[in-house]
């Protein structure tokens, strides 16, 4: 644990530093020695730093929620974006933005986050009920239900947009693509607190989560009552997904790519996978954000779009790789 964690922390520190320095406005070491101008320190403290911190926190959170959902479904392909949890959270957020304006003058951040959290909770529970019978998850059913959820919530979100005015439309569109631009310290602290609480909550469950991977029956045999565990894991992962989606929109594949890499590196034990995935997710999203800002400069690529471009092929490779090993039939059974 020590060595991989130190490596990842070092890398995280380096990419965060790089991401702070680079951008439309490049900082040189000289600038710090000579002292920053008022404009420079405004860019650094009010634009660059919150963005870098938030991308790290959200990357960590999404990777952790991926780990949690994978434990819940006992399958390494479960991922909030893939199985429709993120798009349901986006629907919840847009729902409150559009319909909330009829009831309140201004829709508060906590209302948007709360709605996203609630819909994420409900959709996770529904998916679990659909895909899992008698403690056994059908992988094909889980992925197909995810396809259906993505379609349903995507359509519902677009339906809402028909009834929205111009400013609502703009802020809703950004959920569809995922963007880290224009964030306040306020939303950074709300997201950070939620991700920290949820990650700590999950950290207390690593042992029962390990047993849960062996099946509900076996985790009973090993002394852990799985009922509570399921609700807790669902709740914590939905909290992360809800809050991060309401802050930056849908960013898929972080929760798939990162835990997969970490497992290849250190094995499947959650005591290692959970903290290292958090670090790895932070590294990945900070890097991706840096790339999204630089690649089309002065225009900016939405981070959700970039992650889909990178993560989609990765997912296909993963599927191909599994197929080679075990034949297509493994998609059906205990599988993967």
């Amino acid at each position: 644990m020590r060595l991989p964690a130190m490596w990842l922390m070092l890398v995280l520190f380096m990419v965060m530093f790089l991401s702070l320095m680079l951008g439309g406005f490049v900082f040189w070491p000289n600038d710090f020695i000579q002292g920053l101008s008022a404009q420079q320190s405004l860019v650094l403290w009010e634009i660059r730093l919150p963005r870098v911190v938030l991308s790290a926190v959200i990357g960590a959170g999404l990777a952790v929620s991926g780990v949690a959902l994978q434990a819940l479904f006992r399958n390494p392909l479960a991922e909030p974006g893939l199985i429709g949890v993120s798009s349901s959270a986006a629907f919840g957020a847009v729902f409150i933005i559009v319909l909330g304006s009829f009831f309140w003058q201004e829709v508060a951040v906590w209302q948007i986050s709360g709605a996203a959290f609630l819909t994420a909770c409900i959709s996770t529970a529904m998916l679990y009920l659909i895909a899992t019978r008698r403690g056994h998850t059908d992988v094909a059913l889980m992925l197909l239900a995810g396809v259906a959820f993505n379609a349903i919530f995507g359509a519902l979100t677009q339906l809402l947009l028909i009834f929205s005015d111009d400013s609502q439309l703009r802020s809703a569109l950004f959920w569809m693509m995922g963007s880290l631009a224009n964030l306040s310290w306020w939303s950074v602290s709300v997201v950070s607190a939620s991700v920290a609480v949820a990650t700590m909550g999950l950290w207390h469950l690593v042992k029962p989560m390990n047993a849960f991977l062996l099946g509900e029956r076996v985790s009973l045999q090993m002394g852990y009552a799985p009922k509570w565990l399921k609700w807790q894991v669902m709740g914590w992962s939905a909290l992360i997904v809800g809050v991060s989606v309401s802050a930056v929109g849908v960013i898929a594949f972080v929760g798939l790519v990162v835990p997969h890499m970490i497992r290849l590196w250190v094995g499947a034990d959650h005591r290692l996978v959970l903290p290292l995935s958090a670090l790895g997710g932070a590294v990945l999203l900070v890097l991706a954000d840096l790339l999204a800002r630089q690649v089309l400069y002065p225009a900016e690529l939405p981070i959700g779009l970039l992650m889909a471009l990178l993560g989609g092929p990765f997912f296909l490779l993963l599927l191909l790789n599994k197929r080679q090993f075990k034949g297509v039939s493994s998609l059906q059974g205990k599988g993967f």
Partner: peptide, 11 residues
Amino acid sequence: SQSNELAFSFT
């Protein structure tokens, strides 16, 4: 148990 399911690579 009669059958066991595990989809993650533990040693």
